[in-house]
Structure formats: C-alpha cells, structure tokens
C-alpha cells in the first residue's frame, strides 16, 4: 500500500464513532473484485468439469486434483518465501491449476501433472513477480513445459490409451484430420463433446455455456473470444474456397471446414478460458480484438502446417509475448486529443 494514500486517520469526534479520512472516491463497485472474477471463472468451468467427469471419470478427477493441489502449494510456498501474505484467497492459483488440469489428457500420469503445476506457478507466475506481473499464461507455461519434456505422455499417442473412460478411445479429431485416409468425426458429437481430447476441451457446448456466462458477467471481455473464433472461421473459410485437391494431399489438415475447425480441439475452451486471462492480454478493447485475432491466426497456422495437431497453447503463448507490443500500438487517444504542448 502506498503510505501517502489511504492513510486512514481515525478522527475522534464527540458526536459519534471513529470517523475516517480518505481521498475520493469513497465508494466502489463491490460486485467486482479480483476474488469475485476468479470465482466466476471457477463457476463457469463447472459445466466443463461436469463433461470431463462424464467422459473420463476418475482419471479426470485425479489429473485436475493433482494440478490444482500443486499450484496451490507452490503459490503458498512462494508467499512464505517472499514473506508476503498468503494469496490463496484471490483464487487465481486455483484457476490456473484447474485450467491446467483441464488442458491435459486424462491419461497423463499424476507426476507429470504435478510437475506441470509446479512449473505453471513457479516459473509461469512467481518467477515473473507474481499475480499481474507474468507475461505468459501460467497454465500454458506449465503445459508447454510438460509437453516438451514428456512428449510421450502429452503428444498425440497419449490420447489413444484404451482404458481411459467410457469414450471412444480413438485419436482426437485434429489428429485424424492430418491423416488423409482417416475420417473426421461428425460435427454433432464434436459439439456435444463425446469425442476424445484433453480433459476439458472436448465439449464445445459446455465451454460455450461457461464462456458466455463469463462474458455476460464481464469477467471475460467478449472481444477476445470473438477475435479468436472470428479470425479462425474467416481463415478456414478462405482456405476451403481456395484450396485444391493437390494441396490437401500435401497438407491434409487444410480440408477441415469452418465448423470442424470451430468444434474441434481446445479452440472454444482456449478462446473463452485461456486467451481471456486478463493479465496476459492487452488492456484496450482494440488491443483485445487484435490479440484475439492473432490467436485465431496462429491456431489456424499451427493446426494446418506445424508438427502438432493442435495449436491453441502455442498460439496463446505467442500472442502473450506480443501483448506488450500491442499495448504500445494501441495507446488510446484521449477524448479531446493529446495534451497540448506548452501547458
């Protein structure tokens, strides 16, 4: 706290209780606090978590529990080491842990999940200086680390493990899309989420429910999901218009239609829950749109041409890195114009 600011001098007064002195404003929007925003995200994730239980059963519970627990432990340890008050109450670590868990495959071994959680908070957040200082989305930092270090458990093969849940344990739709011989699943199951994928990403319906709640509460800015989904739809649509059979033979993922793009993989989950992390995206509304569009563009690029079937994680991390630059480009002009010189 800034000493000169909220110095609340108790003034004793014969008329009544201790009256306090403070500078204006004296009232606040109590509907919106850091904690309330994080609570909103947890609430919005409820349908997603529900769907994950239906799809993957106790394995989903295990992964989410491990990531959340390790995030909370590291957050608390960080507070103890830095001798600052515990920050578990702002719930931001819980949100990171849950989103991380939801972004992993159900087959992920508990110790990989744990390491991902430790890296997410330890390196993704605390190493940058804690809440509000981190450049990258902590959950995605943890996931990227695990993916690179333990690709065996997080790559495409991890999704084919037979005994997971009651669901078709076939390859994920986006992996299938890269195999010119394979068929992409029908849209309706992809929308409902009865397909394979990371724990929380499969059901577009569940993600939309939670995501729209977040936008309605204004905890998430609508500009970001709109930018992501709009740009990807646009690019996928253009591709379908321009693409030739020859190019599909060379790059099979180019055959994905707009709706297939929108319903597959972590796209909707990422657009509403990952890209909207306020800390790691730009400040102005214009900046947010640009950020969302950038994520959409990179998702399309990575899905189509990279070595990975899914691109949401790297797309978000890339745009996180660009967010400060976007902020610089989008400094709003004051109403009435810039402050005149010589005033």
């Amino acid at each position: 706290m800034n000493g000169s600011q909220e110095t609340a001098n108790a003034i004793t007064n014969d008329a009544a209780p201790a009256l306090r002195v403070a500078p204006a404003p004296h009232v606040y929007d109590t509907r919106l606090t850091t904690r309330r925003m994080m609570l909103d995200v947890l609430l919005a994730l409820a349908p997603v978590v529900g769907m994950s239980l239906y799809n993957f059963g106790w394995r989903a519970v295990l992964v989410m529990a491990v990531t959340t627990a390790s995030c909370l432990v590291v957050e608390e340890a960080g507070a103890l080491l830095q001798r600052r008050p515990s920050s578990l109450g702002d719930l931001s670590a819980a949100v990171t842990g849950l989103i991380l868990g939801l972004s992993l495959p159900a087959s992920c071994p508990w110790w990989v999940a744990m390491i991902a959680g430790v890296v997410a908070i330890g390196i993704g957040k605390l190493a940058f200086g804690g809440l509000g200082q981190n450049l990258f989305n902590p959950a995605m930092v943890g996931r990227a680390f695990a993916m690179i270090s333990f690709s065996k458990f997080l790559g495409a093969p991890a999704y084919r493990i037979a005994e997971v849940g009651g669901i078709v344990s076939q390859a994920t739709p986006l992996t299938l899309a890269r195999d010119a011989a394979a068929e992409i699943p029908a849209l309706w199951p992809m929308f409902l989420g009865t397909v394979n994928g990371s724990i929380g990403e499969t059901s577009v319906l569940a993600c939309l429910l939670g995501g729209l709640y977040l936008c309605a509460r204004r905890t998430a800015s609508w500009e970001i999901p709109s930018g992501v989904l709009g740009t990807l739809a646009l690019l996928a649509g253009l591709t379908r218009l321009l693409v030739t059979d020859a190019s599909i033979a060379a790059v099979p993922a180019l055959r994905l239609s707009v709706l297939e793009h929108l319903t597959s993989g972590a796209l909707v989950f990422g657009a509403f829950f990952i890209a909207t992390d306020p800390v790691t995206n730009p400040i102005s509304r214009k900046g947010m749109l640009v950020f969302g569009a950038g994520v959409g563009f990179f998702v399309w690029l990575l899905r189509s041409f990279s070595g990975y079937p899914e691109g949401v994680m790297f797309a978000v991390l890339l745009m996180n890195a660009l967010a400060p630059l976007i902020n610089r480009w989008t400094v709003p002009t004051p109403v009435g114009g810039p402050v005149p010189e010589r005033r």
Binding site: R35, P278, T280, P282, R285, G287, P332, V335
Partner: peptide, 20 residues
C-alpha cells in the same frame, strides 16, 4: 473495501474512463 491486490491488467479502468 477489499484489500488491494496486484493489477490484473484487465483494462476495466480504461474501459470506464470517460476521457479514454
């Protein structure tokens, strides 16, 4: 009022500022 936390860079302050 709840205690001050770090800035979330949520942009809300900018979105309400009448002077942009």
């Amino acid at each position: 009022h709840s205690a001050e936390t770090a800035c979330l860079r949520c942009g809300r302050c900018a979105h309400v500022c009448p002077l942009n």
